[in-house]
Write a protein that binds this DNA or RNA. Sequence first.
DNA 1: TCAGATAAAATCGCGC
DNA 2: GCGCGATTTTATCTGA
Lengths: 85, 85, 85, 85
Amino acid sequence: MTSGHNISSAVDGDHLRAFVQRVEAVEATIKEEQEARKEIYQEAKSAGFDPKTIRKLVAMRRQDVAKRQEEEEILNLYLAALGME
Amino acid sequence: MTSGHNISSAVDGDHLRAFVQRVEAVEATIKEEQEARKEIYQEAKSAGFDPKTIRKLVAMRRQDVAKRQEEEEILNLYLAALGME
Amino acid sequence: MTSGHNISSAVDGDHLRAFVQRVEAVEATIKEEQEARKEIYQEAKSAGFDPKTIRKLVAMRRQDVAKRQEEEEILNLYLAALGME
Amino acid sequence: MTSGHNISSAVDGDHLRAFVQRVEAVEATIKEEQEARKEIYQEAKSAGFDPKTIRKLVAMRRQDVAKRQEEEEILNLYLAALGME
DNA sequence: TCAGATAAAATCGCGC
DNA sequence: GCGCGATTTTATCTGA
């Protein structure tokens, strides 16, 4: 018995630890890339661009065209219902 | 005139485009890493581990780090408040 | 016809308006409470305390609670994983 | 000396504690109201409305009209610069 | 005005 | 497919 438990189904600690570390490694990379993106936005701001608008642009390019149309349609329906058109 | 607008002081399209593309590049990397993480969880599941438990473990370790940082920060605040910095 | 549209199956404006107003009502309350909190911090500052330190304290106490919950959850996960639930 | 410190400028613990508790009290209220709002959205969904669209409506009503127009104008400039118009 | 904190909103993963 | 919780993204706010 390796570590004080007598249940054969006990957890393989080393194996588990390896998975946890691999997850933490990729999450570290993700965090780095997120900071890199933040710096790009700061750089754009220094260059005189509005970061908020750039975010919208990126989001628009991401967004599926059909989906966008559908959302706009629903929005217009609601606006009409409220007399805000 | 380059592209249908006659105000020379309008937005510098090439410069803007460069920023947008850089953002999209790092976001592509982020997406890749997120998928890598997803695969690790699948792999762990195949190895007989409960992904939910691993997520909790990772979250706890994250919290430990955050808590330690928080405590260190408040200690510094106290020291500063007492003029001991 | 009540407001310029002739499709009877359009959105029920009154019903929608009621939801919008209920949301805006609770958001007004939230805003009041947020201002109340802000005043408490100002009061503390007037009393000679460093608001930043108090914020850290509150954050730490929040984290303590979160951490305790997290630990309890993972304990339950482990128990379940070992068939001891 | 009340609690083991010999610095006259030491913190008044009871006073500090009172502030912390007052902050935590209003934050508890805020959390309650936030849940109330969530329930309203759920109710709206049950009534057949799209919560996401209602959120947009509420946001639009919050947002200053002039500001909204200005943001849209910047966005259009950028779109033109990218040839996305 | 600026970054850092806070809150709001959207998205994703998972179990039912 | 839906709700629910967790993560991520976006927006707002505050203090320096």
